[in-house]
Design a protein around this nucleic acid. Sequence first.
DNA 1: TAGATTGTTAATCGATTAACAATC
DNA 2: TAGATTGTTAATCGATTAACAATC
Lengths: 208, 208
Amino acid sequence: MNNNNISMAVIRRLPKYHRCLGVMIKNGKKRISSKDLSEVIGFSASQIRQDFNNFGAFGQQGYGYNIKELYNEIEKIIGLEKDYNMIVIGGGNLAYSLVGYGFGNLGFKFKAIFDNDKSIIGKKIYDINVYDVNILETFISKNKVDIAIITTPSDVAQNIADRLCISGVRGIWNFAPIDLNVPEDIMLENVHMVDSLMTLAYLLNDKK
Amino acid sequence: MNNNNISMAVIRRLPKYHRCLGVMIKNGKKRISSKDLSEVIGFSASQIRQDFNNFGAFGQQGYGYNIKELYNEIEKIIGLEKDYNMIVIGGGNLAYSLVGYGFGNLGFKFKAIFDNDKSIIGKKIYDINVYDVNILETFISKNKVDIAIITTPSDVAQNIADRLCISGVRGIWNFAPIDLNVPEDIMLENVHMVDSLMTLAYLLNDKK
DNA sequence: TAGATTGTTAATCGATTAACAATC
DNA sequence: TAGATTGTTAATCGATTAACAATC
């Protein structure tokens, strides 16, 4: 049940497998070999087979992989057969983007938004309530929260993270441009947009 | 002038060096050794020295690194001494987030937003004009555009990317959850938020 | 059956870490 | 000068690729 010591390099390829196989299902494709998948996805056939075999043997010699079956296996591996309750701390533009994005289809459900701005507390973002951030701990203690999303300014992000970790969230999805410290049993995933943009800037200057 | 064949692993650490050194400057710190930086940033001292020495010798034996000098070098390496003109295709919530984010301080300047929704064309997002996407090529031909940001739905993203590449943008920052094909002289950087969230889901299930 | 393609082991490649002479 | 710390080479580790026997 527990696939430990799989390298992060492998784990970060899983969503791309999920995405590509999803497109193939939509296109009515039934089977695919690692060689053909390689051409679509850009990983080597060897790497594709190695990646899958970290989790089990999903293919069939001489045939390849049944796309729908493989897709289902990857959903199970990632954990997409479950639902995840999420809250957002920070009710700015980014909260709007995220709540409106459509993660719900994948099982990621928004349960509440928290802010300290009196002018938006009590309102809704789409259909999600915005609460005063001072009831954050109370809310978490009464509701199972799997993932807390930090979209606050950097200067308060660490304090919010500390409060979340004590209150019992399992994972933090951080959008603040700062390196948070969290206990190692709390999973932390960062979306550092500034880092991404800087990487692009580097590449623009680097190319011949 | 051209730092080619530096591995992406190194390049993606540069923004974190930039961030950490920036904090140290703000705190009035003047010098740091690779050993001390290692404890703050979480990379090994050896790796830090290797990383910097890809680009030159910025330290001094027995002393360490002058923080301000090193910071300036990293800004030059990334290319932050220049400005970048940016446009956004897709005038939804994500465009609001991005335009309002404050990238301008780093030299990343928003010049225009494009959409196909008549109800927002002609309006402004913050102080940036929203234009009809059918004048995209005209705009790019008349204005130097370094980076185009795609925040459209997936189904039109490839078509927009094709139009951008032909028109002469240098880089694409893609937020659509799709794998774009672009000519190899166009730099592509993706922010796949769904992939990031799925990775977090995996980690939540993986932990003991 | 013969051909195709997996699962898996072995070889290679690249990135990280360790070590230490150079030198401030 | 003596101590500290870099820059850089060598060693190790981990990830990717190649190869091929197993088998559908």
